[in-house]
Design a protein around this nucleic acid. Sequence first.
DNA 1: CCCCACATGTAATCCGTTACATGATTAT
DNA 2: ATAATCATGTAACGGATTACATGTGGGG
Lengths: 184, 184
Amino acid sequence: MSLPHAILTALLEKPSSGLELTRRFDKSIGYFWSATHQQIYRELGKLETEGYIRALPSQQPTRGQKKRYEVLSAGRAELARWTAASQDPKPLRDTLLLRLRAAAVVGTAGIEADLRRHLDLHRRQLAEYEEIQERDFPPGKDAPQDRLQHLILRAGIDLETFWTGWLTHALEEFERLPVTDPAT
Amino acid sequence: MSLPHAILTALLEKPSSGLELTRRFDKSIGYFWSATHQQIYRELGKLETEGYIRALPSQQPTRGQKKRYEVLSAGRAELARWTAASQDPKPLRDTLLLRLRAAAVVGTAGIEADLRRHLDLHRRQLAEYEEIQERDFPPGKDAPQDRLQHLILRAGIDLETFWTGWLTHALEEFERLPVTDPAT
DNA sequence: CCCCACATGTAATCCGTTACATGATTAT
DNA sequence: ATAATCATGTAACGGATTACATGTGGGG
């Protein structure tokens, strides 16, 4: 599974405490792999007992005390192994498409407003990505070690572009469509 | 919390047995909401005790005997409620992007082959969707009640188009990129 | 001193996955 | 008869989600 490897990656980029990791999983890595603080603490515990990471030996106390973790060589090796290993893409799972399919049977009442809301959310996300692109990857000078990061960001941009485009199209369709409510 | 509603939708489209549902979850509905037969049987049991569906009273025996289910009015109402209710989009979770991010730290060795494999898989999926489009939605005549179904199919087509495009671009980048292996 | 934000955790539950089990039907 | 296949389930496990619990430090 992927959460431990997401954490190893984040810790290699920068040794951090649990809460710092949580913050970084709200953006950056979290853009394509999200996690809550409970998941993170549990996984940090596992990774430590497995010998993949260790707490930096500055403070060792129990609760309420900041603990920094760093990746050990076994952790780096495991991450490299996982990264190179072949993995099948997971089948799509999208609630909105499922709801449209259901709406074809029980009626479209109420769903259009949510389509608009989703369009707005995806537009915001797209704008956020494009800001990052302008800030971190100004046109012209692409350091080769940043190419991978830029590539990942483009996936996010292209994906949000797809969603905004499709949702816009969907709303146009809805305007030409009668609101059906076959059941009731 | 979407599987029960996916099943209700499938059963409204056509009353089915558990295994028939499983087959239909391998295509059609399964294109955006997949499920195994174990999930389906468990959920059918729940839906029945909750009074949302019932087994058609032709055969009632125990194991090995085909059982057909149909949706009751309470089930239809619940599906309509769920369809109209506002829902937030789930944050993206993509292993491939995560692996690229990890590769930026531990080296890109081995990942290019998997990018090619994914590109191939997405191309096949795209071709499958386009076949369905040509078969079920020939250009020119769009019955209004099919508009929603076509819209959903287009989401799949556009999504696979995004993936194939992005993966192609990614592989071009890789050809210009040295294979890094900073750790070892 | 008390409250609140910070920081780390525990517990309960649900969902998805994998493996296994069992009855019925059909083909050889 | 028996093997393969169809059909319906049970059991065990693990990850994700939600709610709750506990300790620490700083500001009013």
